[in-house]
């Protein structure tokens, strides 16, 4: 269950990641998503090592041609609304990655 308070608490921590750069270590394309992501499937998720050594996984956005997704490509962290909202109408923004 995702409550508005949980979304608010989480969004305080993800702002530190915005604008950080990193490289793709691995990636996958999801064809069987959880229900909150069904409307955007299939979508690509990248496993990225950021410059500070931290690993993240996030959806790759603004990339219509998945054939250009390869390991070691550089990405930058951005903010997106990807999940469908819950009934409380809190918009759950989350991190995503864009190819540089």
């Amino acid at each position: 269950m995702i409550s508005p308070v949980k979304v608010w608490r989480r969004q305080k921590t993800i702002r530190d990641l915005l604008g950080r750069k990193g490289v793709i270590l691995s990636w996958t394309k999801i064809f069987t998503p959880p229900p909150q992501f069904k409307h955007i499937a299939p979508y690509t998720i990248v496993y990225v090592k950021l410059e500070n050594g931290q690993n993240i996984c996030a959806q790759l956005v603004d990339c219509l041609d998945n054939s250009i997704v390869v390991d070691n490509k550089e990405v930058v962290v951005t903010l997106r609304k990807l999940r469908e909202s819950v009934s409380d109408d809190v918009i759950p923004y989350t991190i995503a990655c864009k190819l540089i």
Binding site: R10, L25, S26, W27, T28, I30, T32, P33, P34, Q36, F37, I40, Y43, I45, Y47, I56, C57, A58, Q59, D71, L82, R83, P92, T94, I95
Partner: peptide, 21 residues
Amino acid sequence: SGEEQESGMTFPGLYALMARV
């Protein structure tokens, strides 16, 4: 993890990441 969940990840996806490497 919560981070994996909020990215839209799935268990086939997690093992796919490992398989690719």
